[in-house]
């Protein structure tokens, strides 16, 4: 997968993963992909719901031990 940017949000608690994701996405162009790493277990539903409601596309979600990895394409 072509990743344009990586956001390390590991260790951060709610609401920071989505706040940081939003801020990161703001500076990106439509079609670009952001990879996000987080350790907040709530982020699984948080980022999924966020992507859906904000018109972005969650391409993939992987669990790598304690780290959740997301790939979101900007809509």
């Amino acid at each position: 997968m072509n990743v344009d940017k990586v956001l390390d949000a590991t260790g951060l608690a709610c609401p920071m993963p989505i706040v940081k994701t939003k801020q990161e996405m703001k500076g990106m162009e439509a079609g670009q992909v952001l990879e996000i790493h987080t350790t907040d277990p709530g982020a699984k539903s948080d980022l999924t719901a966020w992507a859906k409601s904000t018109g972005n596309e969650l391409l993939e979600l992987q669990e790598d031990g304690d780290v959740l990895k997301f790939w979101i394409k900007k809509g």
Binding site: P15, I18, V19, T21, K22, W50, S53, T54
Partner: peptide
């Protein structure tokens, strides 16, 4: 304030 910040991130 957590909800407010979350909502702001939701545009």
């Amino acid at each position: 304030y957590i909800i407010a910040n979350g909502a702001a991130a939701y545009d």
